[in-house]
Design a protein around this nucleic acid. Structure first.
Lengths: 186, 186
DNA sequence: TAGTTTATGGGACGATCGTTCAGGTACTTT
DNA sequence: AAAGTACCTGAACGATCGTCCCATAAACTA
């Protein structure tokens, strides 16, 4: 038995992750419909057949990409809640700022995340990945008022998806009162 | 000048609408990615070239389909609000029932509507159509508490898109308390 | 009736797609 | 050093794609 890892496998795993990163960039730019073996390989700067070697099919590549995207979103949301809680009653400010960031500079990424939602709606095997950030949040927050919390989560999702079809991204100041309202105890 | 319309044109317009209806069925079944000249024509039971004649491009067909879908959604939502208001404090019950219907029997249609959202996020010319139902609701409701109303609309959107990735559609009874919370004045 | 306009549909072209395959390279094991 | 394994890649195949072309049928106009 060998203790240290195979140099070939770590190199292969690295390229596999590069392909996933390239696929995510393609999704952010052109949507999931723009993902082909050739576009992803070109984005990553590798030959076309590299994607067919590391992924058994194009579907596998798409699924791996969106699962990776969901994992990143979950950790990102984890730290957001952490910061928001540490700010006490100023939590709404933190949330509104992150929403504005998701609808402005990170717009492409946000669109990619909602493509995951729709893909998961049609493919049950993707649903656990798409739900992960919801589950993380649910596990982090106290359960004494689950209805209010679920209303808050739904409101966040709605503000994001509605903000995506605004002609210009809403600012944190515009979002602030709505987030405040959603967080305010009834 | 001729008063009565051209029989050829009305027949053509009829087929054009049949193609849009067929395209919507394709989107509900396979998503916007499944829309091709051939799949839509096959769904409508007409030759392939019929779609290229009535629509200058496949993009035109897709856009026309999603605009038509948005128009239907707007009128549907109009009557929903009308019924909900007539029921007074039982409005939440009406809304929860319609959400459950959208996530159950009309799941395909709901997914199609959110594909419109994402397409509109990438194509500015689609945004007015995607926003129409929001505009209609905004114009129907009194403006004395716009923040609460926008929070309510965002919550509805979030409940729908989160319901799409549930393993089984939520029931009206499950949704009822959250809708109630969103409608309850603070 | 002759001529114009509009809808229809069969066929085909070039482009792009997912995927396969065989040969080659780099690393590990025996 | 030889054998085995894993990664890499150029070339190509069949399928499907959007779109164009042209002939035909039907409806309207003069």
């Amino acid at each position: 038995m060998k203790i240290q890892s195979d140099g070939r496998k770590v190199r292969g795993e690295k390229r596999r992750e590069e392909l996933i990163a390239a696929a995510l960039r393609v999704i952010e730019r052109d949507g999931a419909a723009g993902v082909t073996h050739r576009t992803v390989a070109a984005e990553a700067g590798v030959p076309t057949t590299s994607t067919t070697y590391h992924f058994s099919s194009l579907d596998d590549l798409l699924i791996a990409t969106l699962i990776s995207c969901a994992r990143d979103m979950a950790t990102e949301v984890y730290w957001m809640i952490d910061r928001a809680r540490s700010r006490g009653s100023r939590g709404a400010e933190e949330v509104a700022g992150l929403l504005a960031e998701a609808l402005g500079p990170s717009r492409g990424r946000t669109m990619a995340e909602y493509e995951l939602y729709l893909l998961a709606a049609r493919r049950p095997e993707l649903r656990p990945a798409a739900r992960r950030w919801l589950d993380i949040l649910t596990s982090m927050v106290r359960h004494d008022d689950e209805v209010a919390f679920r209303a808050f989560l739904a409101g966040i999702d709605g503000l994001l998806i509605q903000g995506l079809i605004d002609d210009e991204p809403p600012s944190a100041e515009e979002l602030r009162p709505i987030v405040d309202y959603l967080l305010k105890p009834h």
